[in-house]
Amino acid sequence: MGFKLLSKLLVYLTASIMAIASPLAFSVDSSGEYPTVSEIPVGEVRLYQIADGVWSHIATQSFDGAVYPSNGLIVRDGDELLLIDTAWGAKNTAALLAEIEKQIGLPVTRAVSTHFHDDRVGGVDVLRAAGVATYASPSTRRLAEVEGNEIPTHSLEGLSSSGDAVRFGPVELFYPGAAHSTDNLIVYVPSASVLYGGCAIYELSRTSAGNVADADLAEWPTSIERIQQHYPEAQFVIPGHGLPGGLDLLKHTTNVVKAHTNRSVVE
């Protein structure tokens, strides 16, 4: 069995187990497998329904001669939608809004960016022009300005110390501490036991640490421990890039980060 097929099978099995364990909360999309990078042309966006009122959005972007996937989250909030992270750029984010209108038909009224990198804030200006209120932590807003990236308009308070959590509509926002970046936030959907790890969490097929220019490698494993301790009931975990899975993604990420750190020390 090929690795790609095995990865998709694991996603399907995880979703099936969740649907059985929580039949009222989960209505997993039966329309197909989780979209992969090879299936999404740059400039297009796919939506994948995880649970009743919960979707991931998947886009792709060219970077350094390669094409990478990027995940975000959409959560229903009454007759409105909360968006977590842009679709990595203005063109993708405009396509995301169009796809949401086509498939869901509810307005996106608020959006949260989970850290300051372009795959999370690139497209904020498109959201703002569409009347979406954009939010991020003060740290993310400051770092985005320093980096020359787009800056969300509103500040999220109460997320300055490791372990801080605040309720934001249908989700809980959690600051686990520094990891992929010093400002990275985690998003949890309690009604569906869905954990969105953003770039602080890796997919299972990833074996290298990737972009760690703004990471705190020493603190990252401790931050992941905080996530595990705060959300032990999480059933569906979405990484910032690639295929979702279960809580095993947290341990896998820790292993990859520690291996990278150990290699760096040896070198």
Results as ranks from 00 to 15, higher is better:
residue 1 M to K: 04
residue 1 M to C: 03
residue 1 M to A: 03
residue 2 G to W: 06
residue 3 F to H: 15
residue 3 F to T: 10
residue 3 F to R: 05
residue 4 K to V: 10
residue 4 K to T: 10
residue 6 L to R: 08
residue 6 L to K: 05
residue 6 L to W: 07
residue 7 S to T: 12
residue 9 L to V: 09
residue 10 L to F: 05
residue 11 V to D: 07
residue 13 L to C: 07
residue 13 L to I: 14
residue 13 L to K: 06
residue 13 L to M: 15
residue 14 T to M: 14
residue 15 A to R: 08
residue 15 A to N: 13
residue 16 S to H: 05
residue 17 I to L: 06
residue 18 M to H: 07
residue 19 A to Q: 11
residue 22 S to I: 13
residue 28 V to E: 08
residue 28 V to Y: 06
residue 28 V to Q: 09
residue 28 V to H: 05
residue 30 S to Y: 15
residue 32 G to T: 06
residue 33 E to D: 08
residue 36 T to A: 07
residue 36 T to Q: 07
residue 38 S to Y: 08
residue 40 I to W: 11
residue 41 P to I: 14
residue 42 V to I: 12
residue 42 V to Y: 14
residue 43 G to D: 10
residue 43 G to Q: 14
residue 46 R to G: 12
residue 48 Y to N: 09
residue 49 Q to K: 14
residue 51 A to G: 13
residue 51 A to F: 14
residue 53 G to I: 11
residue 56 S to R: 11
residue 58 I to P: 03
residue 59 A to L: 13
residue 59 A to P: 03
residue 60 T to S: 08
residue 60 T to E: 08
residue 65 G to E: 10
residue 67 V to S: 06
residue 68 Y to D: 14
residue 72 G to M: 01
residue 72 G to P: 02
residue 72 G to W: 01
residue 73 L to D: 02
residue 73 L to S: 02
residue 73 L to C: 03
residue 73 L to H: 03
residue 75 V to T: 09
residue 75 V to C: 05
residue 76 R to V: 10
residue 78 G to H: 05
residue 78 G to W: 11
residue 80 E to T: 12
residue 80 E to K: 15
residue 81 L to S: 04
residue 81 L to G: 02
residue 85 D to M: 00
residue 85 D to A: 00
residue 86 T to M: 03
residue 89 G to A: 03
residue 90 A to M: 14
residue 90 A to S: 13
residue 90 A to W: 12
residue 91 K to H: 15
residue 92 N to R: 11
residue 92 N to S: 12
residue 96 L to Q: 03
residue 98 A to L: 12
residue 98 A to G: 09
residue 98 A to W: 12
residue 99 E to P: 02
residue 99 E to W: 13
residue 100 I to H: 00
residue 103 Q to D: 10
residue 106 L to V: 15
residue 109 T to Q: 14
residue 109 T to F: 10
residue 111 A to F: 13
residue 112 V to K: 03
residue 115 H to W: 00
residue 116 F to G: 10
residue 118 D to G: 11
residue 119 D to T: 00
residue 120 R to D: 04
residue 122 G to Q: 14
residue 123 G to S: 03
residue 124 V to T: 06
residue 125 D to H: 14
residue 125 D to K: 14
residue 126 V to P: 04
residue 126 V to M: 06
residue 127 L to F: 05
residue 130 A to F: 15
residue 130 A to S: 08
residue 131 G to I: 04
residue 132 V to H: 00
residue 133 A to K: 14
residue 134 T to G: 02
residue 134 T to C: 11
residue 135 Y to K: 00
residue 136 A to L: 03
residue 139 S to T: 14
residue 141 R to G: 02
residue 143 L to W: 11
residue 143 L to V: 04
residue 144 A to F: 03
residue 145 E to L: 10
residue 148 G to M: 10
residue 148 G to W: 05
residue 149 N to Y: 08
residue 149 N to T: 11
residue 149 N to M: 15
residue 150 E to C: 04
residue 150 E to Q: 14
residue 151 I to S: 12
residue 152 P to A: 14
residue 153 T to V: 13
residue 154 H to G: 12
residue 155 S to L: 08
residue 159 L to C: 03
residue 160 S to R: 14
residue 164 D to H: 11
residue 165 A to S: 13
residue 167 R to M: 08
residue 169 G to S: 04
residue 170 P to I: 13
residue 170 P to Q: 09
residue 170 P to T: 09
residue 170 P to F: 04
residue 173 L to C: 03
residue 175 Y to S: 02
residue 175 Y to W: 09
residue 177 G to L: 01
residue 177 G to C: 02
residue 177 G to T: 00
residue 178 A to F: 09
residue 179 A to T: 05
residue 179 A to M: 05
residue 179 A to R: 02
residue 181 S to R: 01
residue 182 T to L: 11
residue 182 T to A: 06
residue 182 T to R: 08
residue 182 T to Q: 13
residue 184 N to I: 03
residue 186 I to Q: 00
residue 186 I to C: 01
residue 188 Y to N: 04
residue 191 S to Y: 11
residue 191 S to P: 05
residue 192 A to E: 07
residue 192 A to G: 08
residue 193 S to N: 09
residue 194 V to E: 00
residue 196 Y to L: 05
residue 197 G to K: 02
residue 198 G to A: 05
residue 198 G to Q: 04
residue 199 C to Y: 03
residue 202 Y to M: 08
residue 202 Y to S: 13
residue 204 L to E: 07
residue 205 S to I: 10
residue 209 A to T: 10
residue 209 A to L: 12
residue 210 G to D: 12
residue 211 N to S: 10
residue 212 V to D: 10
residue 213 A to D: 13
residue 215 A to S: 12
residue 218 A to W: 10
residue 218 A to L: 15
residue 219 E to W: 05
residue 221 P to L: 13
residue 221 P to Q: 07
residue 224 I to H: 01
residue 224 I to S: 02
residue 224 I to A: 05
residue 226 R to E: 13
residue 226 R to G: 05
residue 228 Q to G: 13
residue 228 Q to R: 13
residue 229 Q to I: 06
residue 229 Q to E: 13
residue 229 Q to D: 09
residue 230 H to Q: 08
residue 231 Y to L: 04
residue 232 P to E: 06
residue 232 P to Y: 09
residue 233 E to M: 08
residue 233 E to T: 12
residue 235 Q to E: 06
residue 236 F to G: 06
residue 236 F to V: 06
residue 238 I to E: 01
residue 238 I to R: 01
residue 240 G to A: 04
residue 241 H to R: 02
residue 244 P to F: 05
residue 244 P to K: 04
residue 246 G to C: 04
residue 248 D to C: 05
residue 249 L to P: 00
residue 250 L to I: 07
residue 252 H to G: 03
residue 252 H to N: 15
residue 252 H to M: 03
residue 253 T to Y: 02
residue 253 T to R: 00
residue 255 N to C: 05
residue 256 V to P: 01
residue 256 V to Q: 06
residue 258 K to Q: 15
residue 260 H to L: 06
residue 261 T to E: 10
residue 262 N to Y: 06
residue 262 N to R: 08
residue 264 S to Y: 05
residue 266 V to K: 11
residue 267 E to M: 12
